[in-house]
Design a protein around this nucleic acid. Structure first.
Lengths: 353, 353
DNA sequence: CTGTTAGCGCATTCAT
DNA sequence: ATGAATGCGCTAACAG
C-alpha cells in the first residue's frame, strides 16, 4: 500500500497541471470556460492524486454547508430511527447531509450537541428536545440564526415550529375504547413523566377516565423490565386489581406483555392491554396487541420538509451572500393524527387470519 | 421575536468589545492571558449576541474536524441502528461527532456520500460497503488520506480493516444444530445474495449440509413478506417438503414465522425454524425463535475504537500540522464470534418460564 | 480561455 | 495584557 500524506489542495493540482488555481476551480465546478484539453488534463490529475475540494474553505466563502443537524435522544429507538430515515430521505433530496447527534435525553449533552452543530454551521436543525420546559434551550432557539423544527415534542415559550401527533387525543381515544369494552379499573402504566409526550398521554388518560366517571389508577414507576414486572405483580395482587392496562409507551407495552405472559395471565380475558405506539410484531404476537399508532414517517418527512421551507432560497448563482434576512419562522405546531389500531389484546374480536 | 441576521463573527464581538480579534480569540479558547475584566466583558458580549466560533475557519487552519463519518445501508435497520448507537458512544468519548450517511445499499449513493464526507474533511470513516467487490471503492480506499474501518462486511482487494462476525461459522453451527435434532430436509431461505454476509452464510449452510451428507435446498428469492409467503407455501406443498427452515437474515425469519403461523403450521413439530440474527421479541413469540446472535454492540464499538486507534495522535498543543504521515493501517479483519441462542423454534426444550 | 488578487473567520506568531 | 499582520483553501471579481 502506498504511503498517504494529507489532503491535496487546489494549488497542488494547479501546480502539477502548470495552470492557475482559478482554472482548477472552474474544472471542479463544472468545467465551463475551460478548454477541453486542459479540462481533461486537470481532471486526470485530480483523479490521480485523489483531490477533494475542502468544504471548509467553501463554507468560509459563505456557501451553505448543505448539512442538517438531527438531535434526538437515541438512534436505536425505532421511533427516532424511522424519523431519521424519513428525514434523511428529504435531506438527500435537497442535496444535503443529515448529521445525527444523540442526547440520551440529557439536556446538557443536548446543548453540547447543538453547539457542535452550530460551530459546524449546519443550515438548519431538527430537534427532539429532552425537556420541553428547558428555558435555556428556548432562549437559544429565539436567537439562533438558523431555522429549527422540533420533532415529537415542542419547546414551550418559543416560537419554534414543531411536528408531532396529538398525544392527548391519542390517549383519550384509547382509553375511551377500553371503557367502551366495559373495563372499569384501567391502570395507566409507564415512566419518564418528565417527557412532554408522556405527560400529554397521561393527561388524555385522566381526562377520559374522569369523563367516564372512573377513578384514575396510575403507576408511572416503570423504567425497565424489572420495574414493570414488579409493578404489574403488585397491582394484580391487590384487592381490586385492574381489568385493563393502558401503557403509555412502546417499551412499557412490551414489558407488560412479557410479564403478563410469564404470569400466565389471560389477555384480554383477565386483563386487557392497549399500548401507545405501534411496534414491529405487535400484530404477530398472540394475542396481537392493540395500539395507538403514530404516523412516524410522516412526522420525520413533514418536519424535514418544513425545515427546508424555512431555509433561505437556493442561490442559483453565486449571489454574494451578505446578511440574508432570516425567513419567516411563524409556523405554528403541526399536529398529525394518531390512529387507533384495534387488534386482539383490548378485547376486540380476532381479526380474520 | 427579534429579527435574526446571519452568524456573528469573531470581529463582530471584537468591535462591540472595543478590543482586537486576538483577545476575543483567547477568550473563546480558555481565556488565558486576558485580564479578568475584559474576559468577563467579552464573555458577556459573546453570550448576548450568541456568537459561535466558525468551525470551518478552524478547519482551514488545519485542525481536526472532530467528525467521523458512518456510511450504512439504512438507519431503520436495527442492526445498523445499534451499531450506530455504539459507535456514537465511542465517538462522543473522543469528543467528536458522528455523521450518519445512508446508502440504501446503492454503490452510487454510497460513493456520493463518501465524497461528501471527504469534502467535509471527516477525520475517519466507518463503512458498511454495499458491495464488497466494488473495485472503484477499493481503489478509493487505497488512496484516501484518512483511516477507514469497515463494518459487517469487508472490502476485498484492499488493506482496509474490518470488523464483523464469522458469518460462515455462524451459519455452519446453526445448520449443524438442526442436523443434530434429526432434521434432514433443511431449507435455506433468504434473499439479497449480492451481499457479502448473505453469501458467507449460504456458504456455511452448504458446507454443513454437505458435511452431513444432506442435499442443500435453497430458495433465495425472498425480498418481502409476499415473496416469503409464496416461497414457503410452495415448498410446503411440494412432494418432499422441508422439515426445517434456516433463514439467513432477520427480516426473512420474521416473514417466515408470520407465514407459518398464518398457515397454522406447527413450529417446530411440522417445521422447525432457526434464523440468523436476533431480534427484539424473538424470545417472546410463541414459540420463541432460536437464532444465531451477533454481538452488535461489540461490532460498532470495536470498529469505532479501531478507527480512533488509526487516527493521528491528539495534538496537545497547537503543533502546526504540516504533512502528518498517515499512521499504520495494517490491521487485519477482526472477526467476532457468533452465538447460537437456543429457544423453542428449533425443537429444543422450552426454557423455564 | 486563463491568471492575479482579495477576502471569508480564525489562530498564531511577533510586537508592543 | 493586548493587537496587527499573516495564511489556511477556495471562489469571484477583474484583468489580460
Amino acid at each position: 500500500m502506498k504511503r498517504k500524506s494529507s489532503h491535496p489542495t487546489l494549488s497542488d493540482v494547479a501546480q502539477r497541471a502548470g495552470v492557475g488555481t482559478t482554472t482548477v476551480s472552474r474544472v471542479i465546478n463544472g468545467g465551463k470556460r475551460v478548454s477541453p484539453k486542459t479540462l481533461a488534463r486537470i481532471r486526470a490529475i485530480i483523479d490521480q492524486i485523489g483531490y477533494t475540494p475542502n468544504q471548509a474553505a467553501r463554507i468560509l466563502k459563505g456557501e451553505r454547508t448543505r448539512t442538517i443537524g438531527l438531535v434526538i435522544p437515541s438512534i436505536a429507538d425505532s421511533f427516532f430511527a424511522s424519523c431519521a430515515e424519513a428525514a434523511q430521505r428529504i435531506t438527500r433530496a435537497h442535496d444535503s447531509m443529515l448529521v445525527v447527534a444523540v442526547t440520551g435525553n440529557d439536556p446538557h449533552v443536548e446543548m453540547e450537541n447543538i453547539n457542535a452543530l452550530m460551530r459546524h454551521r449546519a443550515d438548519g436543525l431538527l430537534l427532539a428536545p429532552a425537556n420541553s420546559q428547558n428555558e435555556a434551550l428556548a432562549a437559544f432557539l429565539e436567537r439562533t440564526p438558523i431555522p429549527v423544527v422540533c420533532i415529537d415534542r415542542p419547546v414551550t415559550h418559543s416560537g419554534v415550529a414543531s411536528v408531532g401527533i396529538d398525544n392527548f387525543k391519542g390517549a383519550r381515544i384509547a382509553v375511551e375504547h377500553l371503557v367502551g369494552h366495559g373495563y372499569r379499573r384501567i391502570l395507566c402504566l409507564g415512566g419518564e413523566t418528565t417527557l412532554y409526550t408522556i405527560r400529554e398521554r397521561l393527561r388524555g388518560y385522566r381526562q377520559a377516565m374522569t369523563a367516564a366517571g372512573l377513578e384514575p389508577m396510575e403507576d408511572m414507576s416503570v423504567k425497565d423490565y424489572k420495574s414493570a414486572e414488579h409493578a404489574i405483580e403488585s397491582h394484580l395482587a391487590a384487592t381490586a386489581p385492574p381489568d385493563a392496562i393502558f401503557t403509555v409507551k412502546n417499551s412499557t407495552t412490551i414489558y407488560a406483555f412479557e410479564t403478563l405472559q410469564k404470569m400466565r395471565v389471560d389477555i384480554p380475558k383477565t386483563v386487557a392491554l392497549l399500548g401507545f405506539d405501534d411496534f414491529e410484531l405487535a400484530a404477530t404476537l398472540r394475542p396481537s396487541i392493540s395500539v395507538v399508532q403514530q404516523p412516524i414517517e410522516d412526522i420525520g418527512r413533514t418536519a424535514a420538509e418544513l425545515l427546508f421551507t424555512q431555509l433561505p432560497a437556493e442561490q442559483p448563482q453565486g449571489s454574494s451572500r451578505a446578511k440574508r434576512p432570516a425567513p419567516a419562522r411563524k409556523t405554528g405546531p403541526v399536529r398529525l393524527e394518531p390512529l387507533l389500531v384495534l387488534r386482539e389484546s383490548c378485547g376486540c374480536a380476532r381479526a380474520a387470519l
